[in-house]
Amino acid sequence: MYKEHLMDHYKHPRHNKTLENPQAERYEKNPSCGDELTLQFTISDDDIIDVGFTGQGCAISIAAASMLLEELLGKSVDDVLAMTREDMLELIGVPLTTMRVKCGLLGLHTAKKALYQYKGKTLQGEW
């Protein structure tokens, strides 16, 4: 599971920063293992023009958040909201064991919550 690509994102997470004036922001925690993420988005005309995340957790959750933000930069809010868990797992690129799927999905879950909130809606259902 700990392939080079994943470890690179874990050791050198992209967009691991705090934004000045984000239009969307969200903190989420995975209670079963204590992973914590805060995601921020600068949005202009419903396009994501800057992204940032801070947090702590296992290699899977950090690397997945890093990969996700790299992917989201430049996308529209609606594109992100249309992303599925399968999209996210594909992005991670290595098969996750059942116990670790939640770690891999924490980033997308947080991003969707942030962007639904930005649109004045609530995310229905679980991840």
Binding site: C33, C58, A59, R100
Partner: peptide, 21 residues
């Protein structure tokens, strides 16, 4: 600095079953 889940998962890949949680 290494999350317990990463430790246990990594060890599993080396054939060692230990607990994390």
């Amino acid at each position: 600095k290494i999350h317990p889940h990463d430790v246990a998962q990594f060890l599993d890949e080396q054939g060692v079953a230990i607990r994390a949680g």
